[in-house]
Simulated assay, not measured.
Amino acid sequence: MCPPVPADRVVRVLLVDDEAMVCAYLRTILTTAADIEVVGTAADGAAAFDAVTRLRPQVVLMDLRMPGTDGLVATERITALPEPPAVVALTTFDTDEYVTRALRAGAAGFLLKSTPPEDLIGLVRVAADGHTVLSAAATRRLLAASAAPAAPPEPVARLVAELTDREREVLGCLGAGLSNAAIAARLYLSEATVKGYVSRLLVKLACRNRTQAGLLARDAGLTS
């Protein structure tokens, strides 16, 4: 028999979907992992916000299209909390406009509802560790679908103008959906150096995660 997982290493997950069968399916998969606990479910965005404040999950799997308060509004409210959980959007199509809007609202990434069960547990762990749950290919598709304005909005232009040349290069790479390893190879830097640049960029640009920074890069015209 495997020893129990220490409580402080168990990932607490909240499931949000207006279809009870979806929540039941996700719960069945996730509870097969000893280090994941489904702490609750919610059927709309308002209930999700209340559940987050009560249950303090580390990861929220959030359906976007729900009656009443939808997942977009809930994501924005939850990620604005002082110590927010990682909100991962649940979607059927990865090019859905709702996905881009959720990422702009602060979601840490998205999962397709067709994600294989064997992958779901690992991706929840990735989100709990503070990483973006989004493939590079999916990032590029989303950014391509989110056309940049002809001229960047003034607040975006002002933020980017305050960056160094190297920081703008790194930001452009984030806009292209590149991983730290790929950015390091493109710019001839170490991965540790890239990680430092990304961390500083998130602070300077007031972005919650690298995907938000990538969307800002698109707005600023730093990606082609």
Rank of each mutant, 00 (worst) to 15 (best):
M1D: 12
M1P: 11
P3C: 08
P3N: 13
P4Y: 01
V5E: 11
V5D: 10
P6W: 02
P6N: 04
P6M: 05
A7L: 13
A7W: 02
D8E: 15
R9P: 05
R9H: 12
R9Q: 15
V13E: 05
V13F: 04
L15I: 04
D17W: 05
D17R: 09
D18G: 11
E19A: 14
V22A: 13
V22T: 13
V22N: 12
L26C: 03
R27Y: 01
R27A: 07
L30P: 05
L30E: 07
A33Q: 04
A34Q: 07
I36R: 04
V39D: 02
A42Q: 06
A43K: 09
A43W: 04
A43E: 14
A47V: 12
A47C: 11
A48V: 11
F49T: 15
D50I: 08
A51G: 06
T53Y: 05
R56I: 07
P57Q: 08
Q58V: 03
V60T: 06
M62V: 02
R65M: 14
G68C: 14
T69P: 06
V73G: 02
I78G: 00
P82Y: 11
P82Q: 11
P85F: 00
P85Y: 00
A86Q: 15
V87L: 07
A89K: 05
T91M: 02
F93K: 13
F93S: 13
D94R: 11
D96A: 15
D96E: 14
A105T: 03
G106S: 06
A108N: 09
G109N: 07
L112E: 10
T115F: 09
E118M: 09
V124T: 12
V124G: 09
V124W: 13
R125V: 12
V126A: 02
A127D: 10
D129V: 06
G130Q: 13
S135H: 04
A136I: 07
A137E: 13
A138E: 04
A148V: 07
A150K: 11
A151S: 14
P155A: 14
L159Q: 15
A161L: 03
E169M: 01
L171F: 08
L174I: 03
G177W: 03
S179K: 08
N180T: 13
A181D: 12
A182H: 09
A184P: 07
R186W: 06
L189R: 03
L189T: 03
E191R: 15
V194P: 01
V194N: 01
K195M: 11
K195W: 09
V198N: 00
V198D: 01
S199Q: 12
R200S: 14
L201E: 02
L201A: 05
L202S: 13
V203E: 15
V203F: 10
K204F: 05
A206D: 14
A206Y: 09
C207M: 09
R208E: 07
R210A: 15
R210Q: 15
T211M: 01
T211V: 09
Q212F: 00
A213M: 07
A213K: 03
G214A: 08
A217G: 13
R218V: 04
T223Q: 02
